[in-house]
Design a protein around this nucleic acid. Structure first.
Length: 880
RNA sequence: GCGGGCGUGGUGAAAUGGUAGACACGCCAGAUUUAGGUUCUGGUGGCGAAAGUCGUGGGGGUUCAAGUCCCUCCGCCCGCACCA
């Protein structure tokens, strides 16, 4: 190696466009990422999975981020000696394919498969270390047919139910609408006011697992706390009371029956003395009864029906209600009566569909009571003293939990004791009892759509509802469907649904509903273990690979998808398909990719490619020169046109640059902003690392005989190299990829720094070591560049870098020779001292006190206390 | 509305309760080059000539010491069960 620093010798630049496909072919040729259905057991197994994509047509930056994160983990774990399963597939059923069919006349299957082909090609350009032999799409009959088997198994295990539930109904198109298709209470295509309609639907009995789904959250210690908290709240275990209010007036004037009481669930029976009304949901049976006799009430109930089924819409709507005229008796206050209202904010799905209103301590009840002039009585106070008039609800923790006041026999009791006493009193008078309630509802899986997995059920006039025989599966979707009118094409199909009943052989009709697409994504991770099996999963494969060790995806799936997958895993275990209860041992939730948005003078959105920015930062249209308004930085979306096409970035800068920038920009759990300047910076680093390699290309030079020969600069570089190994390893282990990137910038800087002085005393060997280390450390993030560097540093290597082990840091090189200690007076930094690591406290404090600036500041002050934190800090607490 | 999260220089950010701003982008200055998404060197939180002082969304608290822990307020983001 040369002893002169590399100065102005022209160095060829890194030709990523040639190198990236070359290395992708090399990995593929050697089968670097392929594993068997059953792990060999020679190494520890590691299953890395990113949430599989919906094939919308194009890979977007969110995908690039997701799959880059997963690929870093997969490549890193492989290097650390694991046998890594890293598969990819397609969440291929869903609404957008049907929309494309209606809008463009293309068959959903054709549209979906074309999209998959396009997106697969784009993903493959990223250099992901995926075992593509395991790929499948959920719209493959080989997949959804097995899903139908699972449905039959779950049915047998008592986990499938059929009951009525509400859907959004478009009365003009005569079709069911998804929540997203309801815009301001109207159908997105017809514009008709949406109605709630009851349909008979299939449900998975997820609530049967509610206690264990909640309890098992504690064991998911590699999940983000926030996701566990959100799931716990969603499952929503609450301890409260169910009580029956006796109606003092008969609902229909008819005989006393089930309608002579209203059953209410409450978590706060201790606040019963603060009651001022009962509110029931518009869908409550009693509401229907009253509406039959009163057109005003009927109108109100009908009005509530047009609100749709979305909880967010219901809860944010203005609180409205109507007095039914019915009155109930208070269970504790003889002679007291309270009105029964129908209120639009009461949910039929939760509790009993009826509440008692306690306006003093509940914001919604307060708003309602204020609006309709209902009394507001404080019944909880922190100090047990009832207070003055209320101008706003007492909803702070202090105001909700305390001591009962204005509450008869409960007065003076603390909240928990008051609850118990209230429940005891309800039990004693046989009007209620303590109950545990769950917020979680059973999972409705019926969808009135074509592009989904058919529910394998037959309706027979004689035999009722009959499952399709296992031997007759899969129930495949017919291809010849028409989208020329609204509604479910399966229902309109001339022949598909007509079959013989498996029970009696008489003409019968297939179920034309298909499964919610969440069903498809609730077990795909298990299918990846043996994707070609003639059964849902093979036991040896799932026993070998599950659970997923690291699952990575968007926070938007924190509740539904993850909860449904947890349920499915338990249900599959109950049916004997697998042995684990939890599908995902580790979970990482990534942030979104955002970008500035731009609008032209006329207000229309502009693509980033359409604008240009001059030296003063003024943005104008690239072609017309018109002024451009720079809008908010927001999540990339087609409608705002603030998207950046990953394909263009890879063309221009290469996959490694895109991966590097996406990792370097910020912590992966946070939203990131895509910027052109950031990409350009990443690209410069790619080139810089490559150029550094040039100075050490070729076989490793020998270290000089005897370590005493090593110069100080050599030692500094070696120390930097080994500190990088340790720091990058630690950063990758903790998902701090942006920190790993920073450490690699530092290592590259250390090599450049070493090049400033003439090389001597083993520097050439240290430099080679540094760059070889850099290649290995960088390779999970920039695999192509890593291979290129490795090939130049180790010509004729038998292995690819992808097959090489992770480097080990030499502990002797990590030990610091001195430490810098901060010296504070009253917590304020006044100086620093340099001492040997582990120096005695007395020596350190003496050195601190004599540090010139510290000594000057301490003059005339009395030291009250000396705090010494070894190798970190000295703090003097002074008096006066 | 309810639930969850986030908030640090011009920007993205780093920081086991222990020297706030590592690393990068941008910017400034200089060097190199037959200048073209170059490269290299140095500088870069605010105020101040300096000593210093202020500074992690606002306010309060715990602590010798708070970006970090607690309370409260504000702003933004995600989810709310038929988007995936």
């Amino acid at each position: 190696m040369s002893d002169t620093p590399a100065t102005t010798v022209p160095v060829p630049s890194y030709d990523f466009a040639a190198a990236e496909p070359r290395w992708q072919l090399a990995w593929d040729a050697r089968g670097c990422f392929r594993v068997g259905d059953i792990p060999t057991g020679l190494k520890p197994k590691y299953y890395v999975l990113e949430m599989f994509p919906y094939p919308s047509g194009k890979v977007h930056m969110g995908h690039v981020r997701n799959y880059t994160l997963g690929d870093v983990v997969a490549r890193y774990k492989r290097a650390r000696g694991h046998e890594v399963l890293h598969p990819m597939g397609w969440d291929a059923f869903g609404l957008p394919a049907e929309n494309a069919a209606r809008e463009r006349g293309v068959h959903p299957g054709t549209w979906t498969r074309n999209n998959i082909a396009a997106m697969r090609a784009e993903l493959q350009r990223m250099g992901l270390s995926i075992d593509w032999t395991r790929e499948f799409a959920t719209c493959d009959p080989a997949y959804y047919g097995q899903q139908q088997h699972l449905f039959l198994d779950f049915w047998q295990k008592g986990l499938v139910e059929r009951r009525l539930s509400f859907v959004n109904w478009d009365p003009v198109d005569n079709t069911v609408l998804a929540n997203e298709q309801v815009i301001d209470g109207r159908g997105w295509r017809s514009g008709a006011l949406v109605e709630k309609k009851q349909l008979s639907q299939w449900f998975f009995a997820i609530t049967k697992f509610a206690p264990e789904l909640l309890a098992a959250l504690d064991g998911l210690d590699r999940w983000p706390d926030r996701v566990r908290t959100m799931q716990a709240r969603w499952i929503g275990k609450s301890e409260g009371a169910k009580l029956r209010f006796a109606l003092s007036t008969q609902a229909g004037g008819g005989p006393a029956d089930a309608t002579d009481t209203i059953e209410v669930y409450t978590t706060r029976p201790d606040t019963l003395f603060g009651m001022s009304f009962i509110a029931i949901a518009p869908e409550h049976p009693l509401a229907a009864l009253v509406a039959d006799q009163n057109t005003g009430i009927a109108d109100f109930v009908a009005d509530c029906r047009s609100m749709g089924t979305s909880e967010a819409v219901i809860e944010t709507a203005e609180k409205r209600g109507v007095d039914t005229g019915l009155r109930v008796r208070h269970p504790f206050i003889p002679g007291a009566e309270f009105p029964v209202w129908i209120a639009n904010f009461v949910l039929m799905e939760y509790g009993t569909g009826a509440i008692f209103g306690c306006p003093a301590h509940d914001a919604r009840d307060f708003e309602f009571a204020t609006k309709y002039g209902l009394p507001i009585t404080r019944v909880v106070a922190p100090d047990g003293v009832a207070a003055e008039e209320l101008s706003k609800p007492l909803t702070r923790a202090d105001d909700r939990v305390g001591v009962a006041v204005n509450s008869g026999f409960l007065d003076g009791l603390a909240t928990d004791a008051a609850k118990a006493a209230a429940i005891a009193a309800l039990v004693a008078s046989d009007v209620g009892e303590g109950v545990t309630n769950w917020r979680l509802r059973d999972w409705g899986v019926s969808r009135q759509r074509y592009w989904g997995c058919p529910i394998p059920v037959i309706h027979c006039d004689a035999c009722g509802i009959v499952p399709v025989r296992a031997a007759d599966l899969p129930v495949c979707l017919p291809d010849d469907v028409s989208f020329d009118r609204p509604g479910n094409p399966l229902d309109h199909h001339p022949t598909w649904k007509h079959v013989a009943c498996p029970g009696c052989g008489q003409p019968a009709v297939r179920e034309t509903d298909t499964f919610d697409t969440f069903v498809d994504s609730s077990w795909y991770f298990a299918r990846f273990c043996s994707p070609h099996a003639k059964m849902p999963v093979t036991r040896a494969a799932v026993d070998g690979w599950l659970p997923v060790d690291q699952y990575i995806g968007g926070i938007e799936h924190a509740i539904l998808h993850l909860l449904y997958s947890r349920f499915f895993t338990r249900a599959m275990r109950a049916a004997g398909h697998l042995g684990v209860a939890e599908p995902f041992a580790g979970l990482f939730t990534q942030g979104m990719v955002t970008h500035e948005s731009y609008r032209g003078a006329d207000g229309r959105w502009l693509y980033p490619e359409e604008i240009t920015r001059d030296a003063e930062g003024i943005t104008t249209h690239r072609e017309t020169g018109e002024a451009v308004v720079v809008g908010r930085i927001e999540s990339m979306s087609k409608s705002k046109r603030n998207t950046v096409d990953p394909g263009r970035i890879i063309d221009q800068y290469g996959a490694d640059t895109a991966r590097w920038f996406i990792l370097s920009d910020n912590p992966p759990e946070r939203d990131m902003e895509w910027t052109e300047s950031g990409v350009a910076g990443a690209y410069r680093f790619v080139q810089r690392l490559f150029r550094l390699t040039e100075g050490s290309a070729g076989a490793a030079p020998a270290w000089p005989e005897g370590s005493g020969e090593l110069g100080a600069e050599t030692h500094i570089l070696r120390r930097a190299t080994h500190k990088s190994i340790s720091a990058v390893t630690e950063a990758l282990d903790s998902f701090a990829f942006n920190v790993a990137v920073a450490r690699l910038y530092e290592l590259a800087g250390a090599v450049a720094e070493a090049d400033k002085t003439p090389h001597a005393g083993g520097m050439a060997a240290a430099r080679h070591e540094a760059l070889l280390t850099a290649a290995r450390l960088v390779s999970p993030m920039m695999p192509h560049l890593g291979e290129e560097m490795f090939a130049r540093l180790v010509p004729g290597a038998a292995n690819l870098l992808a097959e090489e082990a992770w480097p080990e840091a030499d502990a002797t090189l990590l030990v610091a020779q001195t430490v810098t200690i901060a010296v504070q007076i009253m917590g304020k930094l006044r100086g620093t001292i340099i001492v040997a690591p582990g120096a005695a406290a007395s020596d350190v404090i003496t050195a601190a006190e004599t540090e010139p600036n510290v000594a000057r500041q301490l003059a005339g002050l009395r030291i009250v206390k000396r705090i010494h934190v070894p190798d970190r800090i000295v703090n003097f607490v002074v008096a006066g």
